[in-house]
Amino acid sequence: MDERFASGLSTNHPMGSYLEALHHTGYYYTFIGIAQVAAAILLLIPRTVTLGALLYFPIIVNICILSFAVRFDGSFVSAPLMVLANVYILVWNYDRLKYILPFKKISDYGIIEKPKKYSNKFPFLFFTTVTVVFGLILLVFIYGHEVMPKNSLSDCKKQFIHTERETEGFQFCQCVHKEGKTLDTCLEEFENIND
């Protein structure tokens, strides 16, 4: 109550700065929290799971895009996976959603419409796809960005220890965590040091 989300994250960090500003919006911050709790409750009740997934979808897509935009370690992997889980719930409940969608008639190709009888065969294609997507998300997290601000100054510096860009990396970390400059400014300075 009356505490910023991820309050341990410095306001100099891009995500910390965003959350601090969001916290100062007053009842809008509370509204977002209530919407998240309402979506969670609706997702837990089988009869209202579709409504919960519809409510939660814009929330988690926003969190996912925000995580990538500011390179936030805290939800860089989990947010895209939650988006995929939400999409899975929406597709699974397509038979309930098709009445509110603006399409007149869509061929189901035998994959969207629920079968009259379910097969007991293990869904290898589904689990292979999930494993590949999970692997791709991890690869983007590990190799997608040359530089990450990380969640603290010490974590930021760890990614540069014993590398050829250790000095420039430490300056980048200082720029984000101590000087509080924008992520774009710090990234630009990081790139210009080597030029």
Rank of each mutant, 00 (worst) to 15 (best):
E166L: 09
L153D: 10
F124R: 09
F141M: 05
L44Q: 01
T128K: 02
K116A: 13
S75N: 09
F31A: 15
L54T: 03
L84V: 07
G169C: 07
P115L: 10
D195V: 08
E168H: 12
F160W: 09
S75F: 05
T129A: 15
F76S: 13
F122I: 04
V83H: 04
M82W: 08
F122C: 00
P58M: 10
L22M: 13
A21K: 12
V37F: 12
I142R: 11
A79K: 04
S75L: 11
A39C: 05
Y94A: 06
A53T: 07
L153G: 06
V37C: 09
I111V: 15
L51F: 08
C173D: 08
I106G: 02
R47Y: 11
P102M: 08
V140W: 03
E146T: 12
K157A: 00
E166G: 13
K121W: 01
K98W: 06
G144T: 06
F72L: 02
E166V: 08
F124E: 04
V147K: 08
G52Q: 10
H145I: 00
F172Y: 09
L139V: 10
K158L: 06
L125N: 01
F126D: 05
F126S: 04
Y29K: 06
H13K: 12
V133M: 15
T48W: 07
E164Q: 14
T185Y: 14
T163G: 04
G52W: 04
L43Y: 06
S107V: 02
Y118C: 01
Y56Q: 10
F124C: 04
V37R: 13
S78H: 01
T11N: 04
G144R: 00
I106W: 09
L42Y: 04
L138K: 12
D155A: 08
R165P: 00
R165A: 12
I65Y: 05
S152A: 10
L136Q: 14
L43E: 05
A85C: 08
G33L: 04
Y29N: 11
Y18N: 00
V37N: 10
K104R: 11
F160Y: 11
T167E: 11
L43K: 13
M15A: 15
A40R: 02
V83N: 03
T131L: 14
F122K: 03
E113T: 14
K116L: 14
F134L: 09
N93H: 13
K158R: 11
L55S: 02
K104H: 14
G52A: 07
E113Q: 15
L42G: 08
I65R: 04
R47D: 12
Y88N: 07
V49L: 03
L9G: 04
